[in-house]
Amino acid sequence: MTRHHLRTASVIGLVAAAGLALTGCSQGEQADGGDQSVHIVASTTQVADFTRNVVGDTGAEITQIVQPNQSAHDIELTAADSAAIEGADAVIVNGVDLDHIVSDAAASDKVIDTSTGITLQAGEEEDEAGEASEGEGHDHGAEDPHIWTAPENARQMVQNIADGLARTDPDHADAYQDNAQAYEARLDALDQWITTSFEPVAPDDRKFVSTHDAFGYFVKAYDITQDDSVLGSLDDHAEPSEAELQQLVAKIEATGVKAVFAEASVDPKVADRIAQESGVRLYSGDDALYGDSLGTEGSDGATYIDATVHNVTLIGQSWGLDLTAPEL
């Protein structure tokens, strides 16, 4: 081989080696997390929905722990969940001890608690004297964690998410804040629609009875009287005995209301019998309210706004209102 050919081969070899080195570097960066997208874990369905609205098209990746129609009270982390939490840049939680299993698994400096700045209410498991009630249901502790049910609180949760992500990912801080403001405007419009929709019903006639204690913040926000006598009566998802069913019917009759809202998991046969014997309409199944969880894609409760419109429409219907869903 001539010296010219040797020199040419050497140059080609150097170029090829450089190309391989660059390729290897690129692959190594991706394998080692060189992917510059922000990785976020969101605990509940509501928190995940808020987070998606704040993130927008920034490219951040979101892992949602609680899935649609699953209760946030029964979170069990899978190996994949734990790995996602460990590798996350931010872990966004509801707070108020609802999803502590998620925040406990994360580094404290990664956690964004959406309950920050929200005035909390006493949990339903305690009475006015601070003593535990005898009702069944989830043990919420001293404070009610269902903060999202009032749109005003949802607004604060969204802002907390935007502020937290802006600290985590300063490069997209403006986008997070702009997205949050746009979504908060929709929440403000939702709040106004609810207020206007309920105006025809006098506050004294705004009575609400549910077998689940997820709506404390909602009823307070809209001057609704909630009768707690049947709370937890069907929350354990077990079919009530004949004696328990008759006690429940008696409690419902004593409230004087025309409708009772139950969880979606209540057996339709049980719901029908309760309704027939008590003379009230029992909203359950597809007509149940979205409380602890949002619904699946395509359902009436696929997003927080959709779920809230669904709930308000049914509550209004129980008071004789015929509401039209707003364009938000």
Results as ranks from 00 to 15, higher is better:
249 V>L: 11
247 Q>L: 01
233 S>W: 04
257 V>E: 09
218 F>T: 03
253 E>M: 06
256 G>W: 12
204 D>E: 15
257 V>K: 00
206 R>F: 09
216 G>C: 04
211 T>H: 06
239 E>Q: 04
217 Y>D: 06
223 D>Q: 06
207 K>D: 04
209 V>R: 03
220 K>C: 05
204 D>N: 03
232 G>E: 08
253 E>R: 14
236 D>H: 08
252 I>D: 01
215 F>K: 05
218 F>D: 05
208 F>R: 14
224 I>H: 00
216 G>Q: 08
226 Q>F: 07
238 A>T: 13
232 G>M: 12
222 Y>D: 05
245 L>E: 04
207 K>V: 13
242 E>L: 14
221 A>L: 11
216 G>V: 10
257 V>W: 08
223 D>K: 01
244 E>Y: 10
209 V>I: 09
217 Y>F: 07
217 Y>H: 04
245 L>A: 02
233 S>R: 10
206 R>M: 07
239 E>N: 04
222 Y>R: 00
206 R>V: 10
223 D>A: 04
242 E>A: 15
254 A>H: 12
221 A>E: 11
231 L>K: 00
253 E>K: 15
251 K>F: 06
227 D>L: 11
226 Q>A: 07
200 P>H: 08
211 T>W: 09
210 S>G: 06
243 A>E: 15
200 P>N: 13
236 D>F: 11
239 E>Y: 02
254 A>D: 13
227 D>K: 03
250 A>R: 15
252 I>W: 09
201 V>S: 02
250 A>E: 13
235 D>G: 15
219 V>D: 05
233 S>K: 05
233 S>I: 11
223 D>W: 01
221 A>D: 06
227 D>R: 05
216 G>M: 03
206 R>D: 01
231 L>S: 02
249 V>C: 10
208 F>W: 12
228 D>K: 13
244 E>V: 00
248 L>G: 01
201 V>A: 00
224 I>F: 10
201 V>T: 01
228 D>Q: 13
207 K>C: 02
225 T>C: 01
251 K>M: 09
211 T>S: 15
224 I>W: 03
199 E>M: 05
247 Q>G: 10
246 Q>V: 06
234 L>K: 00
238 A>V: 15
246 Q>C: 04
204 D>P: 01
218 F>G: 11
255 T>A: 11
201 V>H: 01
212 H>E: 13
226 Q>V: 05
216 G>I: 11
248 L>T: 01
224 I>E: 01
237 H>C: 09
209 V>M: 12
246 Q>M: 15
203 P>S: 06
249 V>H: 05
228 D>C: 03
199 E>T: 14
220 K>F: 06
221 A>P: 00
219 V>N: 02
246 Q>L: 07
210 S>L: 10
202 A>W: 07
202 A>R: 07
229 S>C: 14
224 I>M: 03
252 I>M: 14
247 Q>H: 15
244 E>M: 05
246 Q>P: 13
242 E>N: 12
200 P>G: 09
212 H>T: 13
213 D>K: 14
209 V>E: 08
252 I>Y: 10
202 A>P: 02
214 A>S: 14
208 F>H: 10
247 Q>P: 12
212 H>F: 12
239 E>V: 09
244 E>N: 05
201 V>Q: 00
239 E>H: 00
215 F>N: 01
236 D>V: 05
225 T>A: 01
200 P>M: 07
257 V>D: 04
249 V>R: 06
253 E>T: 10
200 P>C: 05
215 F>W: 15
208 F>A: 10
252 I>A: 09
248 L>H: 01
